[in-house]
């Protein structure tokens, strides 16, 4: 429903743009209209898909829950009841994660999530996160390496930054097959810092590189593998924007995906956090 409203607003804006340009230049306008029409179609499609996906993502576990509980109630077997309750609890946890992520997303996107900016030793934070994830990476036969420039300080919210990288690392550990390499690079680049998380895994096909940041977008739509719900990268994007940064994905020179996050480097560059 959030998505529907968003698309309505977008539709109105796009139509307003069309009207404004109409009497300016007929030829240019015709080209523009064609472009806008394509954008309209994709906006409405993606928001409809988002709505469908929310329903789908909550209905699938609900259906499973219901069938499971009904089945258990038909039997008088306490061991089976126990096993059912444990599955029910797992399923509740999954749904809780989805709801939590959706709430965080809408708060972040609506700008009501309070951002506590302070000077953060980004180099230190990234080293810490690597240290946190290395044992888990090694357990999956993955090599996790950092090439982090020293003394990168930025004005940011440490928890939000950490959540961004935790989401990216969680993905690396899920989608890069055993034996693979994950590389984290961080360096200053003019008024920005650039942090890359890249790998030699399967990568993201070109046509999916924008889409993957949308809610519920997954390369494997069946949701059977690894069981993610496709919200991690939308959170990454929303949090990056809260920090006046942006994120995109390109092909890594290692052969897999390279997620590139750019953030403003110094206090002077940073606008006041939203109230």
């Amino acid at each position: 429903m959030f998505g529907v409203w968003l698309s309505l607003v977008l539709l109105l804006c796009l139509l307003g743009g069309v009207a404004g340009f109409w009497w300016l230049q007929r030829r240019r306008q015709q080209q523009k209209e064609a472009l806008l029409r394509r954008q309209l179609v994709s906006v409405t499609q993606s928001s409809r898909q988002t709505g469908d996906n929310i329903a789908h993502d909550l209905r699938t576990p609900l259906t499973r829950l219901r069938a499971d509980v009904e089945d258990a109630l038909r039997h008088d077997d306490s061991e089976m009841h126990r096993a059912t309750l444990e599955r029910v609890l797992d399923e509740i946890q999954n749904m809780q994660n989805i709801v939590n992520a959706l709430l965080a997303l809408s708060q972040a996107e609506a700008g009501v999530m309070r951002v506590r900016k302070k000077t953060v030793d980004l180099s230190g934070l990234l080293e810490e996160l690597i240290e946190l994830y290395i044992p888990s990476a090694e357990e999956r036969q993955l090599t996790l390496q950092g090439r982090i420039a020293p003394n990168l300080n930025i004005e940011a919210d440490r928890q939000l930054l950490a959540r961004i990288f935790a989401n990216l690392f969680d993905n690396e550990l899920k989608y890069v097959p055993a034996g693979g390499t994950i590389l984290l690079t961080a360096l200053a680049s003019g008024p920005h810092v650039e942090i890359r998380v890249e790998d030699d895994g399967p990568g993201i096909p070109v046509e999916m590189r924008d889409k993957i940041f949308e809610r519920f977008a997954r390369l494997d739509p069946s949701r059977t593998l690894s069981g993610g719900s496709g919200l991690g990268l939308s959170l990454v994007k929303a949090f990056a924007q809260l920090l006046q940064g942006e994120v995109r994905v390109v092909e890594s020179s290692l052969g897999g995906a390279a997620f590139i996050l750019t953030l403003p480097a110094s206090a002077a560059e940073v606008s006041k956090p939203s109230p």
Binding site: E128, L132, Y133, P135, S136, E139, Q159, A162, R163, A166, N167, F169, D170, L173, K174, G228, G232
Partner: peptide, 19 residues
């Protein structure tokens, strides 16, 4: 111990405990 106020998806803590 780490001062993170969110739970990552990966079982990061378990592996540190086993080490």
């Amino acid at each position: 111990v780490w001062e993170y106020f969110f739970d990552p998806q990966t079982n990061v803590v378990d592996v540190h405990i086993s080490r």
